[in-house]
Write a protein that binds this DNA or RNA. Sequence first.
DNA 1: GGTTGACCTTGACCTTAGGTCAGGGTGAAC
DNA 2: GTTCACCCTGACCTAAGGTCAAGGTCAACC
Lengths: 258, 258
Amino acid sequence: MADGLTIGQAAAFVGVTIKTVRHYHRLGLVTEPERDGSGYRRYRSADLLRLVQVRTLAGAGVPLAEIGDLLDADPERFSAALDDVHRRLTERIEDLVARRDTLHRLDRGDRALLPDRACAVLDRLTDLGFSPDYVAGQREALVLARALIPEIYDNFLTQLERSLDDPEFVELTKRGWDARSWDPDDPRIEELASALADKLLANRVVPAMPTGFRNRSDAAARYGLVNHHREDREPSIARLNALVEANLRAAGVDIPHQ
Amino acid sequence: MADGLTIGQAAAFVGVTIKTVRHYHRLGLVTEPERDGSGYRRYRSADLLRLVQVRTLAGAGVPLAEIGDLLDADPERFSAALDDVHRRLTERIEDLVARRDTLHRLDRGDRALLPDRACAVLDRLTDLGFSPDYVAGQREALVLARALIPEIYDNFLTQLERSLDDPEFVELTKRGWDARSWDPDDPRIEELASALADKLLANRVVPAMPTGFRNRSDAAARYGLVNHHREDREPSIARLNALVEANLRAAGVDIPHQ
DNA sequence: GGTTGACCTTGACCTTAGGTCAGGGTGAAC
DNA sequence: GTTCACCCTGACCTAAGGTCAAGGTCAACC
């Protein structure tokens, strides 16, 4: 008898739930339609049209709070606003595409993100016979370096690449990795530290401190984080690294304490 | 002295706010790091790594509630989950692209959405000299028909197209539109209704009632909504339409009352 | 003519992914 | 020695709805 659709029909029509339609009413986005004898809302063509318009904008991500003004604006302002919505939507889409693409890098073994050059170095580590644990640790260090101190990330990578060309250095590094099973007070650690420091100085692959930070302690914090990554799990390696750093410092290399 | 980044540095590092990091702690997504002497959180490399992983997934739209399980899953389950995330992200992107494309149809004069065939008919109406108001009304009716009763939308459109090929019909329709300024009791309305009904029957462009609905009253509600669109604003046109319908009904056409 | 089941009404509270505010403690620098 | 940027907790706010409760209505079926 009473004409107009009920709220359920109207909602199904525009593809939303009843609650959503009522939500739009409460926000004043769509004026409440007339009620029939039993208090039901009855939607007429004009209401549905408005509902479709609101939904189209809302579906495109326009905040509901803006939609009212937008639809009631004069045509050229509306048109300009539409262009703006379109632009923002395009940005959002591009952002999502970029995120989708980085997503698959999470799946390359370690769930972290590294460019190809770093991956090549890591593959080479594996080929040279380093243990998967060691490779994983280096991978994490590279991820951190890239994110925390991009200024010296290249330096870090180059250092790794050059070191791998020197069989003696590779040997020393492997021995250093073996040191994790030694007692932290084992005298061999001091010997090894000395040999490693000499090698580093000879090959000129000393770590460069990051520059350009607001203060030195910030840089030091980042440097320490990268260079002492995973040491909390390996006390002997921590001691080895500390000794190597002490040796380098004694030779005049700028390395922050702790 | 104490090593590790503060929460602000860690947050800046992964590109989020401090509050977001604390939020992840509360959800158990990233375990709370150790505190320093003054109770500040100190983030070490492993914490940052975890933070980057969480952010990468969260940024791709994975609900925070799922991320924990996901990152702690074994590799092949993780990999499968990543594929799933990728798939959902692709769907979302396609959906947004579709919405972006429909968005510009909102800007084609009337802020409603119609396919090309309908637009062509409306343009033709304008070319034939119908007033912009009349065209707007027909446009709205088409939008409603398409959304409410797609089964007869084609029929509706074909009817319009055929009618426009008949100059006499065009003349009668224009006269019908002029009738909105007449008194609703004007005797000319009855005449016109009779002529229009004859023409409709002769051209066989009678409206088809929608079929296949759960009940007849639902169909009737939709039909009424489309066919009596805008009549609340034009009482004379309402009367004219009612008379045309009565004439058609008398000739055996199935049209619901009200 | 009674009951069933699908619909409608309002109102109050829940959700996600954080943001904001209040009130107070820390740390480094000028 | 104070200033200013940073940190702490806890309580409440946001958008865009969803869920639940308690009750009224409508059409259909028996």
